[in-house]
């Protein structure tokens, strides 16, 4: 089983799978389709690296690093 790491530690272009969440942001992200087990790609870091653009289920979403820190992922 691959090791879990926060989304903030993922490099650009890397493909990962959502493992678990912490915090409140999780609920809205799950409604958006970023459910546990969803594959996602970190597309780029924007705004001096402080925000992330991720892609999942044909959707692109920008999020703050504080939100990304609460999403734990596994490399696949």
């Amino acid at each position: 089983m691959a090791e879990e790491l926060p989304l903030t530690g993922v490099r650009e272009g890397e493909r990962v799978v959502v493992a678990r969440y912490c915090g409140e942001a999780a609920e809205r992200l799950r409604e958006l389709g970023l459910t546990v087990g969803t594959e996602l790609v970190v597309r780029r870091r924007v705004g001096l690296g402080r925000v992330l653009e991720v892609e999942f289920r044909q959707l692109r979403v920008g999020m703050r690093l504080s939100e990304a820190a609460c999403i734990y992922v596994r490399r696949c």
Binding site: R28, L29, E53, R60, V61, M63, R64
Partner: peptide, 10 residues
């Protein structure tokens, strides 16, 4: 009130 989680859909 906590800042809403900030997501923007592109």
């Amino acid at each position: 009130g906590a800042q809403l989680p900030f997501f923007v859909e592109f």
